[in-house]
Amino acid sequence: MLRCTMEPRFCETDALGHINNTVVPMWFETARGPIFEIFNPGQDLAKWNVILRKMDVDFIAQIYHGHSVDITTRIAHVGSTSFICEHEAWQRGELVAKGTAVMIYFDFAVQRKLEITAEQRVGLEKLS
């Protein structure tokens, strides 16, 4: 499992005074950074090889500026060409959001899926 802490910025608040719902998917993507390293060490954009197929977010409670948010990420499933990440966001000990992201190992040059290698599978399974 991966863990990271996000510090909500004032600019991420909305007119209702809480963190805008568009921010959480970005936090979850940030939390996937170490997973991207498994597929593309150094995260060279010219060699990018992972694409988002689907994501969802359940907003459980409001998130506020001024209190850090802890994000946990785990790999829930590894298929032949894709994998599923599960995320949770916690603020002050309370689950405030959770979601999943389906990621595909992808060759952008030929626009097709790639088979996840044994080495990549081992890296992903360490995060389950």
Score class of each variant (00 low, 15 high):
33 G>W: 10
58 D>S: 09
1 M>K: 13
22 T>I: 15
38 I>F: 06
116 I>S: 01
39 F>D: 03
63 I>A: 07
111 Q>I: 04
81 T>Y: 03
65 H>F: 12
73 T>Y: 14
29 E>R: 12
1 M>S: 13
125 E>G: 04
91 Q>S: 10
61 A>M: 09
7 E>T: 15
38 I>M: 01
45 L>Q: 09
18 H>D: 06
40 N>M: 11
44 D>C: 08
112 R>T: 02
96 V>N: 09
35 I>N: 00
110 V>Y: 02
89 A>L: 09
4 C>T: 14
32 R>N: 10
49 N>F: 06
97 A>Q: 04
118 A>H: 01
36 F>W: 10
36 F>H: 12
8 P>Y: 00
128 S>G: 10
63 I>Y: 02
81 T>F: 09
89 A>P: 04
127 L>W: 05
16 L>D: 15
45 L>R: 04
67 H>C: 13
33 G>D: 14
111 Q>M: 07
115 E>R: 05
52 L>G: 06
124 L>M: 02
55 M>V: 08
4 C>P: 01
92 R>C: 13
69 V>P: 00
25 P>Q: 10
104 I>W: 04
125 E>I: 01
91 Q>H: 11
38 I>Q: 00
48 W>D: 11
29 E>W: 12
102 V>A: 02
86 E>A: 13
16 L>R: 07
6 M>G: 03
53 R>N: 12
109 A>D: 06
39 F>K: 06
21 N>K: 11
88 E>L: 10
23 V>K: 04
48 W>I: 10
43 Q>S: 05
39 F>R: 05
10 F>P: 03
126 K>Y: 09
82 S>I: 11
57 V>Q: 01
42 G>Y: 09
25 P>D: 15
39 F>A: 04
47 K>G: 06
75 I>F: 00
90 W>L: 09
9 R>S: 11
122 V>H: 08
4 C>I: 12
45 L>D: 11
50 V>M: 08
58 D>Y: 08
37 E>P: 03
101 A>H: 00
84 I>R: 01
107 D>A: 02
40 N>H: 11
1 M>T: 13
41 P>F: 03
106 F>L: 04
106 F>T: 00
39 F>C: 08
114 L>E: 02
98 K>N: 03
99 G>V: 00
28 F>S: 05
56 D>I: 00
96 V>E: 07
97 A>T: 02
44 D>P: 07
122 V>R: 10
61 A>C: 08
39 F>N: 04
100 T>I: 03
85 C>D: 00
66 G>I: 14
1 M>G: 12
105 Y>G: 04
126 K>S: 12
4 C>L: 11
65 H>Y: 14
17 G>H: 11
20 N>S: 14
92 R>S: 14
6 M>T: 05
62 Q>P: 07
15 A>Y: 09
26 M>S: 14
104 I>T: 06
53 R>L: 14
59 F>E: 04
79 G>L: 14
68 S>R: 12
102 V>Y: 00
91 Q>G: 10
58 D>K: 13
7 E>A: 13
